[in-house]
Design a protein around this nucleic acid. Structure first.
Lengths: 160, 160
DNA sequence: CAGGATCCCTAAGGATACTG
DNA sequence: CAGTATCCTTAGGGATCCTG
């Protein structure tokens, strides 16, 4: 009946003590506004006020969330100066931040299907062929894998 | 520079007013304990006390989170009775709940890479071939798509 | 534009005790 | 086992005002 089979027996040992990566990720940035700030970053937003306005939070909240994201390493502050203006800051995604993208896609995909009667306001298209893009599970051998075909295993220290 | 190109111009209109599916999803279940309860459900946990214990929250918190998940439709309460015992409740995933799985995988995958020096305590394997499983972006035409090859578009009402 | 400071409100969640 | 009830602490976040 469980979706996953595997190391269920000794699970209590690691799932309860903060080893779980889901827990770590949610602890680090499991707030709605952090996710929405990341969404804005993917859409190209770089300026402080734009983040605050487009996410729909106060500047105080935006400052707090952005600082956390910078401290965690998902974004960097980049000073810049327009001609005749004084120096300002831009926020840019790091590789660590860009790598969070699948999380946002997964959240959007689920919300599109289950919380929006029209299937969601926007979609992602493959630039080359124009077809809609979705997330899928794939194994290293190249097989498409469904949720029911998964085994759970402790990570083998072998290799990287 | 933005990861995504597309309907950026009129974005303010929909992203700020709660249309965004990421926002809806995070509003509905964007708490750490809700995600961890879902993780436990995938691992086969069905009993109230097991959820509370394995997620590491009090029974009060577990009751609150589980009730929300049931109300939202991700889980159902299922009465059962063991021989000689009185009726009890089990919590089971609905299709809506099972469909959240990619979100958990994405969160885990990111945490494994960026928040855990050993690459995460566990991994998912394809039951048939034993190879590790990861999430990937794919378009409807079958192409593997990278984050840089995405366009953003309003959903076309045409077709489904 | 890019914040910081202050005050207040609300939701999540721990601790503890009690019920069927 | 499956909860409910009460009390308390903390973090997120709104509102408002101020600074460089």
């Amino acid at each position: 009946m469980p979706l996953l089979q595997g190391v269920l027996a000794d699970r209590d040992a690691w799932s309860a003590v903060g080893q779980c990566s889901i827990e770590k990720t949610m602890s680090a940035l499991g707030t709605k506004s952090a996710m929405l700030i990341m969404r804005e970053a993917y859409y190209g937003t770089t300026r402080f006020d734009d983040f605050a306005h487009r996410v729909g939070i106060t500047k105080a909240a935006a400052a707090a969330r952005l600082s956390e994201l910078v401290d965690l390493g998902l974004m960097t502050r980049q000073p810049y100066r327009e001609p005749g203006q004084r120096t300002r800051q831009r926020y840019r995604l790091t590789e660590m931040g860009a790598d969070l993208f699948p999380v946002l896609v997964a959240l959007m995909q689920w919300g599109d299907r289950w919380l929006d009667d029209r299937g969601g306001p926007v979609q992602y298209l493959h630039r080359d062929c124009g077809e809609p893009v979705t997330l899928a599970l794939r194994c290293a051998a190249g097989h498409e894998v469904s949720s029911e075909e998964l085994d759970l295993a402790r990570r083998r220290p072998s290799k990287a």
